[in-house]
């Protein structure tokens, strides 16, 4: 029997972008609303898992040439490096700061260094979750 899942693949190509948009929104909604690096990373990993389920591993790894173990390591390094960055300014480890800037398009915006830390957390979560899913599905 010839297997035909063209509807699923056509729907997935659109839905993945909706999920990625939600992931970016959750990541940027930060520490004042529900959201943050961990949840944004989980939703981002959900989009990758959906791609891996609908298509196959080799196609997606040709389209996204990341080694997800290295992505997780880069995220952990980024999170720890922002912690050590505060030592340069004579502040305790992992202390963060923020300020208000006038950006040309967005107006008065709050920029915080905790966003870099959250980016590290998000990268670590994406790498770990995708690595776990791929290694579970390996031995069938």
């Amino acid at each position: 029997m010839k297997i035909n899942n063209v509807i699923l693949q056509a729907v997935t190509k659109i839905v993945v972008f909706i999920i990625l948009t939600l992931a970016v929104y959750l990541f940027l909604s930060g520490h004042n609303n529900p959201g943050g690096g961990f949840i944004g990373g989980l939703v981002l990993a959900t989009a990758f898992v959906l791609l891996f389920i609908v298509f196959d591993i080799e196609t997606i790894q040709k389209a996204l040439p990341f080694d997800f173990k290295k992505v997780a390591a880069l995220g952990a390094f980024l999170a720890v490096a922002t912690g050590f960055g505060s030592l340069l300014f004579d502040a305790p480890f992992l202390s963060q700061s923020f300020g208000y800037f006038d950006l040309p398009f967005f107006g008065k915006t709050e920029l915080a260094t905790v966003t870099i830390f959250e980016a590290g957390v998000a990268l670590a979560v994406v790498g770990v979750v995708v690595t776990i899913i791929l290694s579970i599905s390996e031995d069938v």
């Binding site: 389920i53 609908v54 196959d56 591993i57 899913i133 791929l134 599905s137």
Partner: peptide, 16 residues
């Protein structure tokens, strides 16, 4: 989607 693919194919994430 994952459950349906498990029923139809027996495998969720295919290698090729």
């Amino acid at each position: 989607i994952a459950f349906s693919k498990y029923i139809e194919r027996g495998v969720i994430i295919e290698r090729k």
